[in-house]
Amino acid sequence: MNDILLGLAEAARLIVSFDPELIEITLRSLQVSVGAMVIASAIGLPFGAWLAINRFRMRRVVIALLNALMGLPPVVVGLIVYILLSRSGPFGVLGLLFTPTAMVIAQVIIITPLIASIAHQAIRELWADYHDLLISLNTTKSQRIRALLWDGRRALLTASLAGFGRAIGEVGAIMIVGGNIDHATRVLTTAIALETGKGEFALALALGFVLIALAIAVNFAMHALSRTERSGRW
């Protein structure tokens, strides 16, 4: 209990003093997780929509697979990405291992199924609603997907934010592919793991509180952004 109070106090001290290291790793956390969210959304949202409006033989299998992939253990993803990006691996020549880019790649793999699955659920409902109209208007498949993505954007924002939430709190994969290198790939979660390992619970908790505050701030910011939009009233 006392540790939690100490953690809160330490968090307050770090924030008030604009601790440069804290700012650095916080920005890197944001950079990696937002990057992963943007890329994963660019893949997952259209895929979820495509899956909602298409009927094909393996559809149920694909959906079951997608739902299963939502539970991918990050450590396993990290290990696989590590092996792929390792100098001895197939993509070693790119020299991406232990860079923020590698961390983004691992997180994209982790959160894309989550984003696609939530998007699929949301779009499926909207499609049931729009089905007759869009067929009647003689739309092409890509026009349908575009209309559904645009009109479902509030629900899809939730999907993206769920992905962001998983990314920003993730440690297992980015620890392996990023390496938690000071001033290069250290982010909030890996720093928390490091400080916990040292038994520095107050500092670890302080970073944890910063992480939680950051996640909340990003969620509020995204919702505020979507609300300022003119036609965003539903």
Binding site: S86, S88, G92, F98, G179, I181, D182, H183, A184
Partner: peptide
């Protein structure tokens, strides 16, 4: 010098892989 802080086993694997 960028440090990768890992267990001995993993440190040697990283070296062997040229990472």
């Amino acid at each position: 010098v960028q440090l990768l802080i890992v267990g001995t086993g993993q440190a040697l694997r990283l070296g062997a892989a040229g990472d």
